[in-house]
Design a binder for these strands. Structure first.
Lengths: 285, 285
DNA sequence: TCTTAAATGTAGTAAAATTACGTAAATTAT
DNA sequence: ATAATTTACGTAATTTTACTACATTTAAGA
């Protein structure tokens, strides 16, 4: 993997290096932080090798040159990198598992940020803008995602509802038609009931949007799919990141819709916000 | 603070910079990763300023010079996290607002990771382990967080329920007692109804756990509070990050409980996982 | 409007990194 | 063992990059 820690890479490569490269490696490993702040000349001196040797050393590790190498070394040294991609151990204490779980969520989000299709997002926003009515469907953990989505989207002055009852979902899907958008959320994309509901809705001419996994049965059934390629967690201790990802994607969609509505729509949002003020103790925003 | 992220520092300083420095800042913030790989000349060209201006800019941020500045920038960029705290503009397109929203969520999570009190997390896990029964309470957006929590915690073979009905919450709070844990989730910590419910539960001898804001009326009412110091979003376009944070904290708590239960408990979790297999199309995990 | 200070740019200089090339060491084949 | 060939390493020149000193412009204050 590209994001593998440079220091580990160097340590691993140590036995395969030749004389002068080993000298350079040792100097860097003995004080990587100092290395990031030295010039090629001082480093060469410290390692008792020539400058080009240091340069060649850098290129061996896929850097374009010495400055690039230092940059990558600096990134490896950054504090934020700590727990990246590490799983929770059965004997971890709070101070260990807390950042691990949060970091793992952060990494997943970063992945989604870089991979999500903007075209698709746009298409979905299009559909949501055109909708006369929106239904959010989800079962299990996706049920609360659907509910959260309802809480976000009712603000757009549209009939919106969320459902986690399979029978209810079937009935609604079969009564829907043009102008109705069924927004189906599924962590696996393979739950039979969910796929069937999507099929029913589709057959009746409704728009079906899927927030689910690439190439899943559900994805194939939808008008547009926002397929998220979140790595499946095999670890028992690790929580499901897809819920979080789905929520954030719904945030993105809601923002997309708000922007399309234009600035004239903002007072309406403000009104909703203010409606809650009397329910709160003072010193509020 | 020294470990403060350079990008945040630049963003904060933005209003105090003079013309050419602002130009430089904008170019760097718009693509920090590119900045770390450019020479002072190319950066100066991009920002339409002279090279010494870039150099002065770097020195203003306590760097010894341009290379040192790039190094520090690189560290801030480590682990794929862009800490940029840019807001969504009314005329942003998908490609702009999508990463902005995800980055903002990531940024908030990173903040929580560094600030959350491990002692408190431990205390809450203690209480949850000892609980005979757990009620998750939340209104509005926190309602779906509560529901998600229920979906996670029922796996521990405990009577668990979630409620978003104020009357129901009051009744349950007043009938509770020792061994009952009321887990109250609130974005603001100032919703009167919620604070009252917490008070009722507390009076009846139940344990009240708050997932809410520091120094809020709710926080003061609780046996233990996990107070999250998530920056309030004033921007209309920006989604509420606290929901996500709350969900992730609940992930952390659930993991804490799982670990305390020990390895003997894993087969039980496995059983629940397997129970869903028949509901899915094949080729599943 | 003049004075002064701050901001920015120009041009020259120094430093750093890279390349081309040559020599030395090591490896292989004879 | 020694010649041939490859690989490793260094020297020196070149190029790129960063920095400094100073000049010019712009803005602010009197």
């Amino acid at each position: 993997m590209q994001s593998q820690n440079l220091i580990n890479v160097i340590t691993d490569a140590l036995p395969n290096l030749n004389k002068s490269e080993t000298k350079v490696a040792q100097v860097i490993l003995s004080d990587p932080d100092a290395a990031t702040q030295s010039s090629i000349a001082t480093l060469a001196k410290k390692a008792h090798v020539s400058e080009p040797s240091v340069n060649r050393f850098c290129k061996r590790f896929n850097a374009t040159g010495f400055p690039d190498f230092k940059l990558r070394l600096a990134k490896s040294l950054a504090s934020g990198i700590r727990f990246v991609n590490r799983n929770v151990d059965p004997d971890d204490d709070v101070a260990s598992y807390t950042p691990k779980i949060i970091d793992s969520t952060i990494n997943t989000l970063a992945l989604v940020r870089d991979k999500i299709s903007h075209t698709r997002v746009n298409q979905v926003v299009d559909k949501l803008i055109q909708a006369k009515r929106i239904y959010f469907f989800g079962l299990g953990a996706s049920g609360s995602v659907a509910r959260d989505a309802e809480n976000k989207f009712f603000r757009f002055n549209l009939p919106v509802s969320s459902h986690d009852d399979v029978l209810m979902q079937r009935m609604l899907a079969s009564t829907g038609g043009t102008g109705d958008v069924f927004f189906v959320i599924s962590h696996t994309g393979r739950t039979k009931e969910v796929v069937e509901v999507a099929e029913i809705a589709r057959r009746n001419g409704s728009t079906v949007i899927g927030l689910t996994v690439v190439d899943s049965p559900l994805a194939e059934m939808c008008t547009v799919t926002l397929d998220v390629d979140v790595p499946e967690n095999t670890d028992e201790y690790m929580p499901m990141a897809s819920r979080i990802v789905h929520l954030v994607i719904l945030d993105v969609l809601a923002t997309g819709v708000t922007l399309r509505r234009g600035p004239d729509f903002l007072p309406h949002l403000e009104k909703i916000k203010n409606s809650l003020k009397p329910t709160r103790y003072k010193n509020d925003n």
